[in-house]
Design a protein around this nucleic acid. Structure first.
Lengths: 348, 348
DNA sequence: TAATTATGCGCAAACGTTTGTCCGTTTTTA
DNA sequence: TAAAAACGGACAAACGTTTGCGCATAATTA
């Protein structure tokens, strides 16, 4: 019952050979004779020897570890992403060092420090909502630690990122509703300060233009994403002159608040008032009274792409490829997905 | 634009002092004079010096890292747990190395190996469904790496674990339905092979005894947790002689399948047929047509407890406390939570 | 058979830290 | 004022690996 893991040194001592020989034997180096090699491997097996990654790092200058900093691990969107990241990392023999910022800029900074301490080879980041300065990310460049951002991208120059463009999905969403016969379509958007709100609004407008319809600004209302705010926003829409028969909501949370409120108002979901949303929540598939369609943002795919890019960068770096001057900027197009199972008027 | 992070050595060279002095200065060791200390800290700041954790590990024999191996990161239950774990670890200056087994025994074994390579100080594990041999965990004991299991506990002796007991919650669930006036309560349970199924059945029976009622075995049917299986199970219950007016389902997925099916059968949810389930899914709060109550399993709490236990063990170990012979076995009692917002007959 | 090439292995440095020990000055104490 | 204590700092070993280099001995070549 040893208390410490076996080392290469001990093996060397026990076999009366040098540590370098042991090391080489374990790596099948050609300059080591067959018999020695076998002896070493046998003993290593018996001692349950495992190479000490930490020591290897010191030698090689890399940890085979990538850091991941996300706002909220329990959010379904991010947990899908982290799952993808872990899968990608595993395939390429990397390990994931995980941390969450809770949308706190100060904590995010500390986490970046910690990742530097641990000498992660690279970093995957979805930026905190409240981060205003990006100096902590800039610093990493001097450390030669590549970062790939995803989903929440900071306003920085010369960065790698993977993001999802909501515009296309929004155009699809609005067009979908138009095709179903709706002539007045409302939108409960997020705060104007959010980049994401802009994309949705743009998409809405472009869809109208594309379908040669007039854009009525009063049909887009903003809300603060709370339940109360959502109720108010829906009330506003329903009170408007061109009372909408369909609503596009900023995200699934807003959608569910709105659906609840609409139900309270005795409106039949997707009949009197049809809903389309953006997918944040899983298992929408399991229930009725859900939006009839959702704009999918592919969190798993985003995480996967981001991880693959980072791992590619690391592989290049390790092979001594010259500092890249080009930056990956991957845009995943959002896509409208009809929610089969939703109550539906099957309009055509 | 340095390509490598600054080291203590460089600082020493630049200042024409020894590395030990630099190290001590940075740690505010009393034997270093004020002026030298200040010079060192100043230069360290300018060079953006960050201690190399990896090197420190080699010295100190610990990585300040805990490994976490879970079946599925994207499962809401586990992502809540991992969020709690990260929070606890962060508070005590630890970092989380994360991996998922996808319920694959082989992969789980490899992950344990990898964690050993990285020399994590301790391990948090929720065991894969398909794991049959626990040798890879046993081996860790020889490495003196403490493990704390949670939620899914292996059948091993002498382990630390945190689990949630479903029995109490089930008793509460059945009693709750009885109090609401139901006289025939069905249960759609999981496969008999699952430990979790046993607990639920026990709870059901104890609730009947407690309320001095006769237990009718035909009211408990098992299913394979698929949608088709659930439908069949529900049909079975509804066809039974004592057609139940309420059903306890194995988990939220089963509940949602059953609710969908019941709706198709024109049954009014929680009126003609009342549902109680076990909480796996979030945002149940956002929708109607959900079980009127859920047995909560507190994933965040489980993760938190497990992490705290592990970190306590590590702290003890670091302070040289003798090998503990006692094992933490924490049982969290499940608890029935009424789902406000669910359609309800408000029976009394 | 002598010169050359392989073969098989050991030596030692290096990666970045921490820490026990030792040593030369300065300051205090008697 | 001489001896003792306190101060400030340097030396070197250690943590576990990898790897360039050198050096015997054995095998090949001419």
């Amino acid at each position: 019952m040893r208390s410490k893991p076996a080392t290469i040194k001990e093996i060397a001592q026990l076999l009366n050979i040098s540590v370098s020989t042991v090391s080489r034997a374990l790596h099948d180096h050609p300059s080591i004779g067959l018999t020695t090699r076998q002896k070493v491997k046998k003993l290593a097996g018996e001692l349950n020897y495992e190479p000490n990654q930490t020591a290897i790092f010191l030698q090689q200058g890399r940890t085979l570890t990538i850091g991941v900093i996300l706002p909220e691990l329990s959010e379904s969107f991010f947990s899908s992403a982290i799952s993808a990241i872990e899968d990608s990392a595993y395939k390429r023999n990397y390990t994931v060092l995980l941390a969450q910022s809770h949308d706190d800029e100060q904590k995010e900074k500390q986490l970046v420090e910690k990742m530097k301490n641990h000498r992660v080879d690279g970093l995957l980041v979805s930026v905190s909502k409240n981060t205003s300065s990006y100096q902590h990310f800039e610093n990493l460049k001097q450390y030669n630690i590549p970062i790939v951002f995803f989903d929440r991208i900071p306003a920085m120059q010369n960065i790698h990122y993977v993001a999802c463009n909501m515009e296309i999905g929004t155009i699809e969403a609005v067009s979908y509703l138009l095709k179903k016969g709706h002539r007045s379509i409302g939108m409960i958007n997020g705060p104007g300060t959010l980049f994401a709100s802009g994309e949705r609004k743009e998409g809405y407008i472009k869809a109208m233009i594309k379908n040669r319809l007039k854009f009525d600004p009063s049909l887009i209302v903003t809300c603060d994403l709370t339940e109360a705010g959502t109720q108010q926003a829906l009330n506003e829409l329903l009170a408007s002159k061109r009372k909408p028969t369909a609503v596009v909501t900023f995200n699934d949370y807003v959608a569910l608040f709105a659906i609840k409120h609409a139900t309270d108002l005795k409106l039949r979901i997707n009949q009197d008032l049809e809903f389309v949303s953006y997918a944040n929540l899983p298992l929408i598939n399991y229930m009725e009274s859900i939006p009839s369609a959702s704009v999918e943002q592919f969190p798993y795919l985003q995480g996967q792409k981001a991880a693959d890019i980072l791992l590619d960068l690391l592989a290049q770096k390790h092979q001594g490829v010259a500092e890249q001057t080009a930056y990956y900027k991957i845009i995943i197009e959002s896509q409208l997905i009809e929610n089969r199972g939703a109550a539906d008027i099957k309009g055509k």
